[in-house]
Simulated assay, not measured.
Amino acid sequence: MTSLHQDSIVIDGLIIAKWGRDVFEDMRKGGLTAANCTVSVWEGFQATVQNIAGMKKMIRENADLLTLVRSTADITRAKAEGKTGIILGFQNAHAIEDHLGYIEAFADMGVRVIQLCYNTQNLVGTGCYERDGGLSDFGREAVAELNRTGIMIDLSHVGAKTSEETILESKKPVCYSHCLPSGLKQHPRNKSDEQLRFIADHGGFVGVTMFAPFLKRGIEATVDDYIEAIDYVINIVGEDTVGIGTDFTQGYGHDFFEWLTHDKGRHRRLTNFGKIVNPEGIRTIGEFPNLTEAMARAGWGEARIRKIMGGNWQRVFGQVWGA
């Protein structure tokens, strides 16, 4: 591990791995300071509360490796203690059901990131895999409540119209926590140059993913292809607005992807990813230091590397979460 990687705040804007000691050890091996860890996708309120309780139990049982993040100070502390900070995040607002009060309840439980929609329609708005009706009036109320309670709004899997209306509605920065540019590959999950510019122009943030089906060379991609994609986004929105959002699915197999790619986990098929292999050089979370090395290999300066690897995420989280 290079000294630059060791010294840097390293934040992953999205991981949805199969949580367990092996993954937590790999986070430590990779020098991960903090990560937005998914605890809700298709689950309703009760099942999501159970997932949060389960994750908190794991944090307690693996306290030598992990700590819960409620503030950016907790990220700084995780770095000082040589631990990985777990940020509780949702990939769908489905868990708030039709009750705005659940947003504050989740905030009190420590949830710090909520994506509005996961691929399809919910009460808030529309995902990226169906006709987009935009942000509902209930969605507008939800955005105001997410702002008030200091929860970061994520739009990665959200439709273009719902995203645009959310960006305009929100009083705090919103993000695409894990996306790629459609300028390098056309895909319903990728964002156009215009969409990337729009979120950045309105104070938002872009986490760049390495999920192979969305990368230009697919499963042939290497860590250098991932750097090319990050570079592409930086050239559009600037280096202060970009971070990492790998979308690691470490430990999961076929059944998990079947659940993810069907509406509500059980209805119509939305997409088929085919074979899923992370880019060569960063196949596992433990290989995170290779990313810093690839950035240096691409001629990036130390200041830019520190920003992209986590400094930018920490700053924008602070703007949303508050003191």
Rank of each mutant, 00 (worst) to 15 (best):
Val23Glu: 00
Val23Asp: 00
Val23Cys: 01
Phe24Pro: 04
Phe24Cys: 02
Phe24Ala: 07
Glu25Tyr: 10
Asp26Ile: 07
Arg28Glu: 12
Arg28Pro: 00
Arg28Lys: 14
Lys29Leu: 09
Lys29His: 06
Gly31Pro: 06
Gly31Thr: 09
Gly31Arg: 08
Gly31Val: 07
Leu32Met: 14
Leu32Ala: 07
Leu32Glu: 08
Leu32Asn: 02
Thr33Gly: 04
Ala34Val: 11
Ala34Cys: 10
Ala35Thr: 14
Ala35Ser: 15
Asn36Pro: 09
Asn36Leu: 11
Cys37Lys: 05
Cys37Asn: 09
Thr38Glu: 01
Val39Gly: 01
Trp42Asn: 12
Trp42Met: 13
Glu43Arg: 08
Glu43Val: 09
Gly44Asp: 15
Gly44His: 14
Gly44Ser: 13
Phe45Glu: 12
Phe45Trp: 12
Phe45Ala: 12
Gln46Arg: 11
Ala47Leu: 15
Ala47Glu: 15
Val49Thr: 07
Val49Cys: 09
Gln50Val: 12
Asn51His: 11
Asn51Phe: 04
Ile52Asn: 04
Gly54Met: 08
Gly54Ser: 14
Met55Asp: 08
Lys56Leu: 12
Lys56Asn: 11
Lys57Leu: 15
Lys57Asn: 14
Lys57Gly: 14
Ile59Phe: 02
Ile59Ser: 01
Glu61Leu: 13
Glu61Gly: 08
Ala63Leu: 05
Asp64Gln: 10
Asp64Leu: 06
Leu66Glu: 01
Leu66Trp: 02
Thr67Val: 15
Thr67Lys: 09
Leu68Asn: 02
Val69Cys: 08
Arg70Lys: 13
Ser71Asn: 13
Thr72Met: 03
Ala73Glu: 14
Arg77Ile: 13
Ala78Ile: 00
Glu81Pro: 06
Glu81Asn: 10
Gly82Arg: 03
Lys83Arg: 08
Lys83Pro: 05
Thr84Cys: 10
Thr84Phe: 07
Thr84Ser: 11
Thr84Asp: 10
Gly85Arg: 13
Gly85Glu: 07
Gly85Trp: 11
Ile86Ala: 04
Ile86Trp: 05
Ile86Phe: 03
Ile87Met: 11
Leu88Glu: 00
Leu88Cys: 03
Phe90Met: 05
Phe90Lys: 05
Gln91Lys: 11
Gln91Asn: 09
Gln91Pro: 08
Asn92Ser: 15
Asn92Val: 07
Ala93Gly: 08
Ala93Arg: 10
His94Cys: 13
Ala95Cys: 13
Ile96Thr: 03
Glu97Trp: 01
Glu97Phe: 00
Glu97Met: 00
Glu97Ser: 02
Leu100Glu: 00
Gly101Trp: 03
Tyr102Cys: 00
Ala105Asn: 07
Ala107Ser: 15
Ala107Gln: 07
Ala107Leu: 06
Gly110Trp: 02
Gly110Pro: 02
Gly110Lys: 01
Ile114Val: 14
Gln115Val: 00
Gln115Tyr: 04
Leu116Asn: 01
Cys117Gly: 11
Cys117Thr: 15
Cys117Leu: 09
Tyr118Trp: 11
Asn119Pro: 04
Asn119Met: 12
Thr120Gly: 11
Thr120Ser: 14
Thr120Trp: 12
Gln121Met: 14
Leu123Gly: 08
Leu123Pro: 01
Gly125Cys: 06
Thr126Ala: 03
Thr126Ile: 05
